[in-house]
Design a binder for these strands. Structure first.
Length: 525
RNA sequence: GGGCCUGUAGCUUAGUCAGGUAGAGCGCCGGGCUUUUAACCCGGUGGCCAGGGGUUCGAAUCCCCUCGGGCCCGCCA
C-alpha cells in the first residue's frame, strides 16, 4: 500500500472521519525545493483521506509572524534595524538587498512565487497567515493558558530538550517600542495585557488578543495544533529528533487542552552530492527553478515514489531522464494482475506503484494516461535540440503520429520546460547533440571496413537524392544494400560520422535539418 | 555527548510497521525487429537481504550487540 493511503487509514482509526492536514513554512528567504516535500507529503495524505471519503482539509500555515533572525547574505545591512521584527511587518528587499516598502511585506514577497509553484503542481491549500491568527485573537486563549502554565511549560522544555531557559524567560514574546521582539523583558501579566520593558528602557504593554507579540516557536506550534484542530502535520527531521520541537510540542499541546497530531517525520531532499539544501549556504534549487525544467507530475512522482523516511537525491542532470522514463513506463504499462494470483509481496508492490501514480497527478483523480502528452521526455529532448521552431516539432510529431492535429497545452508546457533545461546549465553533456565538423579520431578507430565502404557509397549516391528525411532514408537503405551491410551497422556509421558517438536520434530527420553542403563537408573532412 | 534514519543483484531500489519459498527497473549478455523514439520485443545473467547472536516450526522482517553510511540536536523542512 502507498504510504499516503496507509497514513490516511491510520488517521481514520486514530482520529475518526474529520481530518485536518497541515504544513507550514517560514518565508525568511527564497523557499526551496526541500519545502515542497513537506507540502506534498501532507497534501498527498490529504488526497488519500479524500479517497477514503473522509472529511479532510489541507491547510498551509505561513509563519509570517516569525521574526527576522539575522541578516541573510542577500540582505543589506539596512536590515539590522528589522532583526527581531515579524516578517509580515517589514519591507521586502529589492535586487540589492535594500528594504523597499513598495515591494510589499517581506513575507509576501518570498511567499507569492512559491504559491505560484504550488498552483503548478496542483496543490490547493487553504492558506493561513499566522500573523493574522494573532491579529484576530485566535491565539489569545492559548497564550493565556501558556502564561498560566508557565512553570510546567518551562519544565517540559527544560527536561525534554535539555535546554536551560534564562531567568527572565517568558512563554510570550511581546513586541517592543521599535517593533522588535529582541531584548524585551516581561514585567507582568494581567489578562489581556503583558507588560514589558524593552532594550531602550521604554515600557509598554501588549494585548495578547492582537498581534503585539507572539509565542516562542515551540509553544506557537503546539498552540496552533490545538485551535486549528490539526490531526497530522509531517515535520522535517530537525523537528523530529529527540528533544526537538515535536517532542516538546506534544505535552505542551495537551497541557493547553488539545490533542496533538501524531509524530510524523520526513527525510530531506538533497542536491546530488552537495548535501542538504540550505538557503544560507546558497546550496539550493528553488521549486520555481525546478518546475522550469521538470514537468510537475514528475516532481510529484519524485516525492510520491519515495518513502517518507528516505532521503531524496535531486539531480538536475541525466537522472531526470531516468526518472521521467520510469514515470512514463509506469503510465504506459501500469502494474496489474489478479489479486488472487499474486503473492502478498507482489500485491503490495502493485498497490504501492499504483498509489504513487495516483498521487502524482496534478489534478486529483485524473487519469495518469493523460499526463504524458503522448511524447516521451527523451524524444522531446531530441526534437527540441534539432528543431529550433516549435512548429517544426509539431509537424515532426504529427508525421510520427505521436500527436494528432494541434498539440495540447500539456505538451506545449513540456516543450517550454525542455527548452529551458537544454539551454540552462543543468542539461547533461552526454545528452547533447553536437554536430561534428569533421570525422573524429575516435570515430575513425571505431569504423569497420564495411562501414567505411558504406559511407563512401552513401556519399556517392546522396548527390542524386533530394534533401529531405524520406529521401535520405531511402539513400541509406540502398547504400547499405549495395555494400551488403546491416542497417544497424549503417546507422551506427552515420552516428559516428555526424555526431561522434555510436547512437543518436533519427539520423535522417537530423540530417535534413542541416544544410546538405555542411553534411557533405563532414564526410570529406 | 543525546537521538533519528539507513545498509537487499554492478547501480537505484520494493518488500520491514501486520514473520510464511527474495521482487522490480536500469545495466550487462544472447537473440529478434528495423525509416532508431539514446526505441521496441523475447530470453538470460546476477542476492549466504552489512556481520554476529537471540526469539520462533519458520526471520530481510521482531529483540540485542558490532561495523559502515547519511543526518538532526541555536534558526532552518
Amino acid at each position: 500500500m502507498h504510504w499516503a493511503d496507509f497514513t490516511a487509514q491510520r488517521l481514520q482509526k486514530e482520529r475518526g472521519n474529520n481530518q485536518i492536514l497541515c504544513s507550514g513554512i517560514t518565508p525568511s528567504g527564497e523557499i526551496h525545493l526541500g519545502n515542497l516535500r513537506e507540502i506534498l507529503t501532507a497534501e498527498m495524505i490529504h488526497r488519500a483521506c479524500l479517497d477514503l471519503e473522509l472529511n479532510s482539509r489541507y491547510i498551509f500555515i505561513v509563519d509570517s509572524m516569525d521574526p527576522l533572525r539575522r541578516i541573510y547574505p542577500f540582505l543589506s545591512d539596512e536590515y539590522q534595524k528589522y532583526i527581531g521584527c515579524p516578517l509580515a511587518y517589514i519591507p521586502a528587499p529589492d535586487k540589492d538587498g535594500q528594504p523597499d516598502s513598495s515591494l510589499g511585506s517581506y513575507s509576501d514577497y518570498f511567499l507569492s512565487p512559491f504559491l505560484d509553484a504550488l498552483q503548478q503542481i496542483g496543490v490547493q491549500p487553504e492558506i493561513i497567515m499566522n500573523h493574522q491568527s494573532y491579529e484576530n485573537g485566535e491565539f489569545a486563549k492559548k497564550i493565556d493558558g501558556a502564561i498560566k502554565h508557565m512553570t510546567e511549560i518551562r519544565e517540559i522544555i527544560e527536561t525534554i530538550s535539555g535546554r536551560e531557559l534564562s531567568d527572565n524567560w517568558f512563554p510570550y514574546n511581546p513586541i517592543g517600542s521599535d517593533g522588535s521582539m529582541d531584548g524585551v523583558i516581561v514585567t507582568g501579566y494581567e489578562y489581556p495585557y503583558v507588560s514589558w520593558t524593552d532594550r531602550h528602557d521604554i515600557s509598554g504593554r501588549s494585548d495578547i488578543r492582537k498581534s503585539e507579540g507572539k509565542l516562542p516557536w515551540r509553544i506557537d506550534w503546539a498552540a496552533r495544533w490545538g485551535f486549528h484542530g490539526i490531526t497530522c502535520e509531517p515535520a522535517g527531521k530537525d523537528h523530529g529528533s529527540a528533544g526537538g520541537s515535536f517532542d516538546t510540542g506534544i505535552p505542551i499541546c495537551r497541557l493547553l487542552g488539545s490533542e496533538p497530531p501524531g509524530k510524523m517525520v520526513y527525510e530531506w531532499i538533497q542536491l546530488k552530492g552537495m548535501g542538504p539544501m540550505s538557503s544560507s549556504s546558497g546550496n539550493t534549487i528553488g521549486p520555481i527553478e525546478a518546475l522550469g525544467l521538470v514537468p510537475p507530475e514528475i516532481i510529484r512522482y519524485l516525492i510520491a515514489g519515495s518513502k517518507v523516511n528516505k532521503h531524496i537525491d535531486f539531480d538536475t542532470g541525466g537522472a531526470l531522464f531516468t526518472m521521467a522514463d520510469e514515470y512514463e513506463r509506469l503510465v504506459a504499462n501500469p502494474p496489474s494482475g489478479d489479486a488472487e494470483k499474486l503473492s502478498k509481496r507482489q500485491l503490495i508492490a502493485r498497490d504501492t506503484k499504483l498509489g504513487a501514480l495516483r498521487m502524482s497527478q496534478i489534478i486529483h483523480g485524473t487519469d495518469p494516461a493523460d499526463s504524458v502528452a503522448g511524447v516521451s521526455f527523451r524524444h522531446l529532448s531530441m526534437l527540441a535540440q534539432i528543431k529550433s521552431d516549435d512548429e517544426g516539432i509539431w509537424n515532426s510529431l504529427r508525421q510520427s503520429s505521436h500527436i494528432d492535429g494541434m498539440p495540447n497545452q500539456n505538451l506545449i508546457n513540456r516543450l517550454a520546460r525542455m527548452r529551458n533545461w537544454i539551454e540552462g546549465p543543468h542539461f547533461p553533456t552526454d545528452a547533447q547533440i553536437i554536430i561534428q565538423s569533421a570525422i573524429t579520431e575516435e570515430a575513425r578507430d571505431n569504423l569497420s571496413t564495411e562501414q567505411n565502404s558504406f559511407l563512401s557509397e552513401f556519399q556517392k549516391r546522396i548527390i542524386d537524392y533530394e534533401w529531405n528525411e524520406s529521401s535520405i532514408n531511402e539513400c541509406i537503405r540502398e547504400s547499405a544494400a549495395a555494400v551488403e551491410i546491416g542497417m544497424r551497422q549503417a546507422y551506427m556509421a552515420l552516428y559516428w560520422t555526424i555526431l561522434g558517438k555510436y547512437f543518436g536520434p533519427r539520423i535522417a530527420a537530423l540530417m535534413s535539418e542541416i544544410d546538405k553542403d555542411e553534411v557533405m563537408a563532414i564526410f570529406s573532412n
